[in-house]
Design a protein around this nucleic acid. Structure first.
Lengths: 232, 232
DNA sequence: GGGGGGTCTCAAGATCCTGTAAAGATCGCC
DNA sequence: GGCGATCTTTACAGGATCTTGAGACCCCCC
């Protein structure tokens, strides 16, 4: 999950940029780099990073200006890195919208810890409200909670039934082959056992379809596999 | 709006506490003071402050423990103040849930600026329900007070039982896997020991369920984990 | 009308998972 | 050092789930 997090590094000096990239990338995070303020602002807009690491001492558009410009439209956490440790510099940056301020030299593990704090904030903002749900007619699938409802009623599914449905939901509208189900759920050793899929799909339909003989949700594509309707 | 903001100061040394109160109160913020960790936790629950200023070097329940305990039910920003500037101290506090870490001595205006950052974060989250109590049928869990009641009667839980229940409450309605419980409670070294979870979950049910064989609250999802009902 | 591929359903047995008790190990406290 | 509380570990019965095979069905083509 947080393996997918994207960090934007805005830093003009090459050695420092390398250091930051190595540090951040070495911890399961993706890195996007900008060598100037303008580029940084553009990448913040195009890549929607989860956190921004920003060096104040940029040539051209300086770090404070970058902060101000990004804050006009985005609330992505910004961690400022600076060689200047004067209090008034910190106050200015923080009041302009930065979320943290680190003075060089700093320790690698402190930076990472503060990065985790910022990611926590970013993640919380993203996770506010209810879970993302897939709704189709009377069927409701909450992949985050692992809960399935039909006409508002919770339906109990066994592990295999749930995984079948989750696969269908994640690829709603597309046809999934028997082979695909077998690979994803039973692993590579089960090829050819198409009846596994059929039996469990039948159980699944019995639980979520009103009339399993006339399925509304799970459509069988004869000779190929199954497909989940996207329209009611 | 921010004229109404409440800052909780948890600090045992009187001069420092006076200094912080004067500083914060002089900027249109209300101050609530605690002289110990226990008091701090209690006031955090009863006064619902917008930001918490926490000294790490408390006697008795120390600052790290205070952070951990508050984070069990609340996401109020915590700014840690400490005489210790070692990197590992910072990392530990931040990873336990603190949002910022200031090393003494620090400048007054920097503290205020970081306080404004924390208030910004708190304000963004102002729409939060704020009641850290979970009620479901005859079961009542007060994460702030660390108290569990069944039909009004207080129930004594062992540490592990309580943490199991607290996890369930914090993710009420979602299925939590065995792996998740093991990681959160026993740490990364305990993977594969699913029976830990089963044994303690059984003890927990014996204490909170009327009929453990027909659980009303803790639902088992065979092959996956457990889930706490959200509806009666 | 018959045959065949593909599909659905059912149910029995095998397999895996879960709840529970109970005994031993550990810990904190006096 | 002893005691009580808690945690770990083991064992087993009962329950839930999965596999497997067989029969029925459907649709299309011959």
């Amino acid at each position: 999950m947080s393996d997918e997090a994207v960090i934007l590094v805005i830093e003009d000096e090459v050695p420092m940029r390398r250091f930051l990239r190595a540090l951040v990338a070495g911890h399961g995070l993706r890195v996007v780099e900008a060598a100037s303020g303008e580029e940084g602002i553009a990448l913040a807009a195009s890549h929607a990073p989860d956190v921004i690491l920003l060096d104040l001492g940029l040539p051209g558009v300086d770090g404070l200006e970058v902060t101000r410009r990004i804050r006009e439209w985005s609330e992505t956490p910004i961690i400022v890195i600076s060689a200047r440790g004067l209090e008034e510099d910190k106050v200015r940056a923080l009041d302009l919208g930065a979320d943290d301020y680190l003075t060089k030299p700093f320790g690698a593990s402190e930076l990472l810890a503060r990065l985790r704090v910022a990611l926590r904030h970013a993640g919380r903002r993203a996770a506010e409200g209810a879970d993302p749900r897939f709704v189709l007619g009377d069927l409701e699938v909450d992949l985050a909670a692992r809960v399935v409802r039909v006409r508002g009623e919770e339906v109990h599914l066994t592990p295999i039934e749930y995984r079948l449905l989750a696969l269908l939901v994640r690829h709603a509208g597309r046809v999934l082959t028997h082979r695909h189900f077998l690979r994803e759920i039973w692993g590579p050793g089960a090829s050819g056992q198409d009846h596994y899929v059929r039996v469990h799909m039948s159980q699944l339909r019995r639980k979520i379809e009103e009339d399993p003989a006339q399925p509304r949700y799970v459509i069988t594509e004869t000779g190929v596999g199954y497909r989940l309707r996207t329209d009611a």
